[in-house]
Design a protein around this nucleic acid. Structure first.
Lengths: 234, 234
DNA sequence: CGGCGGAATTGACAATATTCAATGCGCTGT
DNA sequence: ACAGCGCATTGAATATTGTCAATTCCGCCG
């Protein structure tokens, strides 16, 4: 059996009050009193790398907050082409569409081992009606989603393969303290940038050859950010 | 003087209660009473084709509802490349970012003569706190913005030039009753699809030659939607 | 009516990306 | 240790797109 154990596991009931990422997540603004109105518990789940969290078209009943890990949202074209439209990490919220739609528009997949909190949509809806901080927080999350999607269009879907890869590397290292960034498969890299796997691979190889990036350990890259920046025109 | 008069003009105070597009716009759910709390009047403005409505970086103090016309939102890369990230028309809301940010992230430009209502952000904010229908409507608008941006990524930024143009034509005719669709400059077409002006032009010519579209009058196209659909794989 | 200016189109060539096939590399299970 | 598998890499040929420079088309103005 060469198949890695891939899947979903319930890992407990979240204790939001003492959550380690509490002040960075959706429920940051909630008071003791708000929590007391939560009859339904918030579940914590964990997904192993590669596991699907939900599929496009699944009934949308929960929002997810990421406690740790990395998640991709993929959208499919009628002809079967897949495009990764978002990448989410610690403290990010996804599945917001559940607030409005009956179905998820994307497929959500864990790219690494990932822990999430599952927030039932009716809980969020109810709370947001009485709590203006949560309301504002929600709005801010929508805003962030739009802003990220727009960057995806301008930065990751425009210009040459080299430009796109460079911008992605900069974006990834922007979110890390050092200039390290951990990458994923070349296939995902391609699906994210609208390129073929081969072009993604070749472009990475080229950047490595030219010294823009180095790979101290497999799939972990060190970026020469100043030069990368210059490469994409500041 | 060969320069066409291009610009902005104040055309009156909106009478939201009797607005012709009332039931389709942001304020659809407001009651008589809500309106009575509007001390500040809602202005109506009109922009001639080509006029800029706001620039990226401008202080964001109002949201806009389109009464008629067509507006593009453009985002710029540091190297100067421009990419059109959204196309908005009657009843669409834009400038939503004003709810959160200090500055507009895009440049908004009228592609045709366009009439808008200008909604001061503090009015919307205040109203939305007491009015849950407006609150829901706002959320729905964010949702729509995200959904559209995602389509932009998967449909207009993925695949060959021919596929992208075909998908755009289908998208445009989807919103018209018949299969007619009015197009804009080839330069804008390129900026929208992430292609050069020349490729945009050539691709249009090719589709015309092959009978997927015809051009009864300049820049007005009739689409053979069934065949276009087949072209992009349903 | 003729000329001017901006946009669209077209051509020729160069640059880039895709395709398909082959090979290499590392991990896992036996 | 080694076979087998999945993924990354590379090569070679092809297709697509970008670039740059004409040229044409069309509306507008004198």
């Amino acid at each position: 059996m060469k198949r890695v154990e891939v899947g979903e596991a319930w890992t407990g009931v979240a204790d939001c009050r003492h959550c380690v990422v509490r002040n960075a997540v959706l429920f940051a603004g909630l008071t003791e009193e708000d929590f007391s109105h939560l009859h339904r518990p918030i579940d914590q789940l964990s997904y192993s790398a590669g596991a699907r969290i939900y599929d496009a078209g699944d009934p949308a009943q929960t929002l997810f907050t990421i406690r740790s890990g990395l998640v991709k949202l993929t959208q499919y074209l009628p002809d079967g082409t897949a495009r990764i439209v978002r990448l989410l990490r610690k403290t990010d919220l996804f599945g917001l569409e559940a607030m409005i739609d009956e179905e998820y528009p994307h497929t959500a997949t864990a790219l690494r081992d990932t822990e999430v909190c599952r927030l039932p949509v009716d809980v969020v809806r109810t709370l947001s009606h009485n709590n203006s901080r949560l309301f504002n927080e929600l709005m801010a999350r929508w805003h962030k989603a739009v802003g990220t999607a727009d960057r995806w269009i301008t930065e990751f879907s425009t210009g040459s393969a080299r430009d796109r890869v460079a911008r992605l590397l900069l974006w990834l290292s922007e979110k890390e303290e050092d200039e390290r960034c951990e990458l994923f498969s070349r296939e995902d890299l391609g699906a994210l940038l609208g390129l073929t796997t081969e072009t993604a691979s070749r472009t990475m190889a080229e950047l490595k050859r030219k010294g823009f990036i180095s790979e101290p350990r497999p799939n972990q890259f060190l970026c020469d950010t100043p030069n990368l920046r210059r490469l994409v025109g500041l």
